[in-house]
Amino acid sequence: MREFSVPERIGGFGSLVAVAAAVWPALVDATGVGLPCPLRTVTGVPCPGCGLTTAAVALVRGEFGEAFHANPLIFGLAAFTVAVGPLVALRASGVLRPPRPWSPVGRRRAGWIAGLLAAASWIFQLHRLEPSLPY
């Protein structure tokens, strides 16, 4: 069994998110149970991932503006999801080589990019949701 690359894993996760986003509204309607953000519930401060469930459901429904407004990171996840299918198929058929491990520099760079994306998302969520912070 071959190892999957980080982009392939992210895309695979995105596939699961897409399926969940298609099923989630019916589940919430049937049970009345939602999925609140634990950090926002406890502290009133949104996390960097706040709005991703709403964004995923909106994106599956084709409501792109609402998806962007809820959390723009969903479009990056969707891009990985769309790209991963052909990538895995091409690697499985032998057209493309299996993934190579990332170099330490590449891992460090990816870590910085992920951290910057999380920080940007958090700033976006803080602006969008305007939490009332105790002073």
Rank of each mutant, 00 (worst) to 15 (best):
G34P: 06
T41D: 10
G14K: 00
E3V: 08
V84R: 10
I123F: 09
H127Q: 13
R61D: 15
A20P: 06
T31A: 00
L129S: 07
S103G: 09
P36K: 05
L90A: 15
R97P: 13
V23L: 15
L35N: 12
G32Y: 01
G34K: 05
R128P: 03
P104E: 10
L73F: 14
C47Q: 03
L129H: 09
G32W: 00
I74Y: 09
S93N: 11
G49H: 01
V88Q: 03
A22I: 11
G111Q: 11
L73S: 13
E8Y: 02
F64Q: 08
P86E: 02
A70W: 04
L73H: 03
L52M: 14
L116K: 04
C37F: 04
A56T: 06
C50T: 05
E8S: 05
G111C: 11
Q125N: 13
G76F: 09
S103R: 11
G14Q: 00
T53P: 02
A78E: 04
W24A: 12
A83L: 15
P46G: 05
L117N: 00
W112T: 13
V57G: 12
A118Y: 12
T41G: 06
V6K: 10
E8A: 02
P99E: 06
W112H: 15
I10E: 01
F68V: 09
G111H: 12
R91L: 00
S132G: 12
S93M: 07
L87I: 03
R9P: 00
H127A: 13
W122I: 02
P98N: 06
D29N: 14
A78W: 13
W112I: 15
I113A: 15
V105F: 15
A114M: 08
S121H: 04
P72L: 07
G44E: 05
G14P: 00
R97T: 12
A30M: 11
W24M: 12
V105R: 14
I10S: 01
R128W: 08
V84L: 00
G44H: 04
Y135E: 11
F68N: 01
S5P: 01
A58R: 11
C50A: 08
Q125L: 12
A21N: 08
G94W: 09
R61Q: 15
A56C: 05
H69V: 10
V88G: 00
A83Y: 08
S121P: 04
V45S: 06
I113S: 08
A30Y: 08
I74T: 04
A89P: 00
G44K: 03
G12Q: 03
G76Q: 03
P98S: 09
V19L: 15
T54I: 07
P38A: 07
W122M: 09
A83Q: 03
L116T: 08
W102Y: 13
P48E: 05
A22N: 06
